[in-house]
Design a protein around this nucleic acid. Structure first.
Lengths: 188, 188
DNA sequence: AAAATCATTTATCATTTGGTAAAAACTCTT
DNA sequence: AAGAGTTTTTACCAAATGATAAATGATTTT
């Protein structure tokens, strides 16, 4: 669990006893490629930390197209956090793009951390805000053209480029796979 | 200050004494059209609540184009929050699109609320997360075409459509003003 | 009111991207 | 290795958007 504790420590300090408690609440799981971490139509019930692999958030448009909304890589928290907190049915899937190793907290455990560890809420909020901030920072910029967006994508997610299907990246960038294929060719 | 207190009350309860304290920390100001609430190159030093008017976040691309990144309307908090918290120079301008009436807290006052009101941090974090969530919810969706994005924009920001310059909306939607003008015409 | 400034619309043509279809390349199973 | 299924590339044409320029409209200043 070292990776998780290191991550948390970036946002606040925990003493040994608190570290032990966090670890006792957590569980290691693995996801096969394409398996879901959480699903649309269900109330999210866990918070994860990605030790290895890539998870994507995706949904289906009214035309039935599958659209990737975000990628979440190693050393990041993963959850449909807003709906988890609000106890509301989620509208998106969180799906393993590659085989994943995760550390997860059930919703109940996650809440117990708040009740047990003084200062946890502070750490938690910083982590959640950082996640939201990074998503907006790393996401495709609508005022750039598709080629620029793809170049930025490769900068921001160097590991993903050849690890996930082209179709995922294309819908993330807001273009068709054909267009992305063309762009790849033109870039050389 | 009723508007502000009503807004805060959606995220947690304050007793009369706490309400008085919040009000004593706040200040009413007005911004003329085009005046800045905060500027790129400076460390953000205030948190505002918009009572009347519209503020936009904007920045300049490496080609010198002015790009609108977000619109913030009445009954919302406004701040470059991440950089305010991190005490880091901002990269964007927050500018009044229309004449604005605001209630503002200096950075110092904003922090004093945390120290003085038990439970304030909890309320504050809920407010900040809600702001971030709404921005992502209401923002243009990159996988939709420009016409759809504009239609969605009008749904999400009905009041803005005829209150702010076309160029602001165009760059927000990631298109040129000429394109947006064309789209307006085609919609009828 | 006229002039000046700024915002919006229109027009034309070039470029980018989408839609459809098919071929090629790759993966997985048997 | 063969075959089935999937993913990626290519090709073609249509549609959307960008770039440039100019005209019109609106607002502010003098």
């Amino acid at each position: 669990m070292k990776e998780l504790i290191d991550y948390i420590s970036k946002f606040g300090n925990l003493n040994r006893q608190q570290v032990n408690f966090v670890e006792s609440m957590a569980m290691r799981i693995e996801l096969r490629k394409d398996e879901y971490f959480s699903e649309a139509g269900k109330i999210p019930n866990q918070v994860g930390f990605i030790v290895e692999g890539v998870i994507r958030g995706c949904y289906y448009s009214n035309k039935g197209e599958e659209i990737t909304r975000c990628f979440i890589g190693e050393n990041n928290l993963v959850a449909d956090y807003v709906n988890l907190e609000a106890n509301v049915i989620s509208a998106e899937y969180l799906q393993a793009c590659t085989p994943c190793k995760l550390i997860v907290f059930s919703k109940q455990s996650w809440e117990e951390l708040s009740h047990t560890i003084v200062g946890w809420d502070n750490i938690k909020n910083k982590m959640v805000q950082m996640c939201m901030f990074q998503k907006s920072r790393k996401g495709p910029v609508i005022s750039q053209n598709a080629t620029t967006r793809y170049l930025e994508f490769m900068k921001n997610y160097p590991l993903l480029t050849n690890r996930v299907p082209l179709a995922y990246i294309a819908s993330y960038l807001g273009i068709t796979q054909q267009s992305l294929s063309r762009i790849r060719k033109n870039i050389g």
